[in-house]
Design a protein around this nucleic acid. Structure first.
Length: 103
DNA sequence: GGTGTGACTTTAT
DNA sequence: GATAAAGCCACAC
């Protein structure tokens, strides 16, 4: 992490937390938000995370919502998760019980 | 500098 | 189990 493309520390922390998610695991937005220091920032994480790709290449595909559902309108996320060994259901959701990141 | 907005979460019905 | 509503906060425009 040397290239400081981000001007906002919040985004930087969010992306850092996302990068800590091990392969084959997923984390919820709320969890990321909690790691960043704000439990209520879950919505921010989602929005900011979407832009995260614009800021740089981050494994935002490992982040899902509390129901384990993937981002709507983002079919590629499913493919990326499956590539890491995460079983994605037909309804674009994952088993949080098995794949949720143990923080 | 104010407004709209969202890839969420939780609680309540 | 599903649906509804409220809360929440920083980013983009």
């Amino acid at each position: 992490m040397k290239t400081k493309i981000l001007q906002e520390d919040l985004i930087y922390e969010i992306l850092s937390a996302v990068e800590e998610i091990p392969e084959g695991k997923v984390a919820t937005y709320g969890q990321i938000a909690r790691l960043t220091g704000r439990e209520k920032n879950a919505r921010l994480v989602g929005k900011v995370l979407s832009m995260a790709q614009y800021y740089g290449s981050y494994p935002c595909h490992r982040v899902v919502n509390h129901a384990g559902r993937l981002a709507p309108g983002w079919a590629e996320q499913r493919f990326l998760l499956e590539a890491e060994g995460v079983a994605v259901k037909d309804n674009n959701s994952v088993d949080l019980k098995k794949y949720q990141w143990n923080c």
